[in-house]
Nucleic acid binder design. Structure first.
Lengths: 344, 344
DNA sequence: TTGAAAGCGCTAACAG
DNA sequence: CTGTTAGCGCTTTCAA
């Protein structure tokens, strides 16, 4: 029950605490004799010594800890994962971090919550924040002195590294695909469209594609709510209420699509015969859907890997070099779209 | 960039560091005058002071950190979340912990990895481990001296607190329901059936229900693989290869069901007309499924809440009182089962 | 009601 | 090649 400390090991090995520290950290400048090393290692395993990382962090100012913040941007959802996207991303972040000997300090946050304290008080080596908007809290993070990586955020600030995708281009790709398939009236369904968020970019891409094809952007064709299954259902209801005007929809998240499809099918609207859908993300849901979703695929695993890599690189670097990483997107054709040549 | 420490606050407030500490922790035995308190608080907010929790943890031996370990029990999956169940559980754990002022140290682990070091290292106040089996690593955790809560594990050891569900009874309930609906030949589809795991309990429940109804348990009706979507697809293939002998299946996880349904439908087997399915978990997937899954619902949110509560209670308690918590289950009827009166 | 001092477990100059 | 020393930032007796 009594924790064995570095001193105990030192005593057992007949050396000083610093020697033990040297051996354990294989400090580059110091050279310890093979024998001493061996004696120390023996003592370590005999006593089952495990270094106290808090103490280490206190004196060395590195913690091998990465803070991961998943802000709650959907009002009323207290939990982190209304969208499986987060789970997949987190999985990848955790795995990559672990491979590099780092642990994760995980926290959701209310949007107005103080990011700084969450990170600062644990002495994290870096912070990864998913999908946040500009604000006071973010600014506070600058004083932290550790690298901050923003995932899927359009906060423009050289103090932060960013990793994201071509949101606008992806949306354009999706919409254009629908247009090529003969659709003329195309709905846009997304979470809330906020300044500096991904959805506004995707909306722009949607508008661009429409305009390029000489098609009008109808306000009545835009559906905006929250990024969850329930909203998909609600959007379906709304779609019917507004008179089923469109023959296709570009939906900015697979979870929403799942709800939309379900809601539509319950009202005997067939997918894709009556309404075609191109979705976004390609989380595992999209294959499970019925019909399987044609969707803009982003490589979520890679996003997580890069996010961690960005933190690690930045924390090694002596100077701050703002890094921006944009991952490619591609359309995956499945079963939720059908050709339409008769659209007026 | 320079971190402000307790000393800076002390200086600014014209008091000693210990006084600041007293004020911040509202130490019960000590009484600080209102004015001093005020001066300290002013300095704190003026300087933007945030206590370093590592240092605090070092000297006070409590960290407000809960370690969460999600062991990788499916070989070949390096990521945590092959099953959305984990995401939902983690969400709930995180939220509850945060409400109580705790943070989460998250780690996946290879099954053979050293749990101890992961936790001990950081001086966590407690550990939550999800779905693990007995083993050396677990034993090592006993020496840690902090409460350990095992979620969904049949490790029998008073040193650990446990929280789980009536796996056997749930399976019995599911199978009996299918029998009541007129099915006689019922498949059992699950992840690996291991000693001390949940699936063996569910298998027993399945067998019990069959036996109680005077039905034979056919080895050919048992499908066992991994807990993921892909295995569901594989099981569907296997089901066809074995000659489509059953008219119903009890599946021990919603993710597997999703794959099974998809695989079956692709081969023109209709659900529920040709094959009825009762699933398990009631993760959000089950509503999204087509048809929506009739499933044994467990309250995952509650599981997470209780797990955290168990840790907190235990870490407050002076003595170790082994606690066992079993959550109720209930069947949710949706669309994946149909009556069958013509089954031989 | 407050402060001084010791120490949590470790690292990192600096000596030797 | 290895030990001594001085902290990292905080809590906590013990005295005043």
């Amino acid at each position: 029950m009594k924790r064995v400390s570095i001193k105990d090991v030192a005593k057992a090995a007949g050396v000083s605490a610093s020697t033990v520290s040297y051996v354990l950290n294989s400090t580059p400048t110091e050279t310890i004799s093979k024998e001493t090393k061996q004696r120390v290692m023996d003592a370590v395993s005999r006593l089952g010594y495990v270094p106290n990382l808090n103490a280490r962090s206190l004196s060395s100012r590195r913690s091998s800890l990465i803070g991961v913040l998943i802000p709650q941007t959907e009002p009323g959802k207290e939990l982190m994962f209304s969208n499986p996207f987060y789970g997949e991303l987190l999985s990848s972040i955790e795995y990559t971090a672990r491979q590099h000997g780092y642990h994760l300090l995980l926290s959701g946050t209310k949007e107005d919550q103080d990011y700084l304290s969450i990170a600062q008080n644990r002495g994290v080596d870096g912070v990864i924040i998913v999908g946040t908007y500009p604000g006071e809290n973010l600014n506070a993070l600058k004083t932290l002195g550790v690298p901050v990586v923003l995932v899927d955020s359009y906060v423009k600030d050289d103090a932060f590294h960013t990793i994201g995708i071509e949101d606008k281009e992806g949306a354009r790709m999706a919409t254009r695909y629908l247009i090529e398939k003969g659709h003329r009236r195309i709905a846009f369904v997304s979470g809330s469209i906020r300044e500096n968020g991904v959805n506004i970019k995707r909306y722009q891409g949607y508008c661009d594609a429409m305009r390029e094809a000489g098609l009008p952007v109808d306000e009545q064709a835009v559906y905006s709510g929250t990024v969850d299954y329930e909203y998909g259902i609600a959007a379906a209801r709304e779609f019917l209420a507004r008179g089923r005007k469109q023959t296709a929809a570009f939906v900015t998240a697979d979870v929403i699509s799942m709800g939309l499809v379900k809601g539509l099918q319950q009202n005997h609207v067939r997918i894709p015969e009556d309404v075609s859908i191109v979705s976004f993300d390609d989380v595992y849901l999209s294959q499970m859907a019925h019909p399987a979703l044609t969707t803009i695929r982003q490589d979520i695993g890679e996003k997580g890997r890069q996010a961690v890599q960005l933190v690690l690189n930045a924390s090694k670097a002596k100077e701050h070099h703002h890094t921006e990483c944009i991952l490619p997107l591609r359309l995956v054709e499945r079963e939720s779209v059908c050709e339409r040549r008769d659209d007026p």
